[in-house]
């Protein structure tokens, strides 16, 4: 295609898609095909659509998304590993009219931060937790996570996760749904266009719950691939996720408006 032809195409009236305003210009540090970037974007889209960018405080975790604050153009705090729900608890209680969220991976939320997660949920703290579950520690190079599936190979379960030695994968989302303090609990994915649209609706619902001062915490799990940690191509990783992760971590709402979905 010649340059002239490109100029003819790249015009404001032909615009169908662009970077979300609340994503910074910093290039994402995530691997191609990873779900983090898409999920970041969905959160920022929702905050922009709610018109709350000046009243939002986010808390970033430790893990692959440790630098989430570099990409999200709102006020952000970087927590110690697993402690984001404690930070968010105080922020929300001291600024009850503000929108507060944490963004956490599986090691952060379901291993080292289990106590902070469970107790923030159980107290019914009125913020949003976005939980990325890819069944592996990506940042540190592919070690076993609390959510690693049985038989799944990682660098610290090189022969596959053996529950007799390494314990079982933890369904923390189902667990927090049992607590009276959670108001909305859902599991989504962002690996296909339709999944992205559904995840966007779920994230929007979670944030709107906060806007509406719903009596409890909104918890959105996003099952994601980690193609580099799983040592697969992005396409293979998404297929593997559908075949292996989704049966154990089924997609859909678990608790809506404080009621468990039957």
């Amino acid at each position: 295609m010649s340059e002239t032809a490109l100029k003819d195409i790249i015009k404001p009236e032909n615009l169908v898609y662009q970077k979300t305003r609340l994503m910074t210009d910093k290039p994402l540090s995530y691997c191609p095909g990873c779900g983090h970037g898409t999920t970041h974007r969905l959160i920022m889209e929702v905050i922009e659509e709610m018109g709350k960018e000046h009243e939002t405080i986010g808390v970033a975790p430790v893990g692959c998304s440790v630098l989430a604050y570099e990409f999200m153009d709102v006020d952000m705090q970087e927590a110690a590993h697993g402690r984001a729900p404690a930070l968010a608890t105080a922020i929300k209680r001291l600024w009850p009219d503000h929108i507060v969220f944490t963004y956490q991976g599986d090691g952060d939320l379901a291993a080292i931060g289990t106590a902070e997660t469970i107790h923030a949920c159980n107290r019914g703290e009125k913020f949003v937790i976005i939980f990325i579950n890819n069944g592996i520690y990506g940042m540190t190079g592919g070690q076993m996570a609390p959510t690693t599936l049985e038989g799944m190979k990682t660098s610290t379960s090189p022969y596959g996760r053996d529950p007799n030695i390494m314990g079982h994968p933890l369904k923390i989302t189902e667990l927090v749904a049992q607590l009276p303090g959670t108001y909305y609990v859902t599991r989504q994915s962002v690996h296909t266009p339709s999944a992205v649209r559904k995840a966007k609706r779920a994230i929007k619902k979670a944030f709107e719950n906060q806007l509406n001062n719903a009596p409890g915490l909104s918890f959105v799990e996003v099952v994601s691939n980690c193609n580099s940690g799983w040592k697969m191509t992005p396409v293979d990783a998404n297929n593997w996720m559908e075949e292996n992760m989704f049966p154990f971590y089924p997609i859909g709402d678990i608790k809506v408006d404080g009621q468990l979905v039957k």
Partner: peptide, 26 residues
């Protein structure tokens, strides 16, 4: 003033990080 009994001292100090980080006296 907000008063909260936390689940642990680990949580307490991180609540101070969050709250203090917004400029409040914690």
């Amino acid at each position: 003033m907000v008063v909260l009994q936390a689940e642990s001292e680990v949580a307490s100090i991180n609540m101070l990080y969050g709250g203090g980080g917004t400029g409040k006296k914690v």
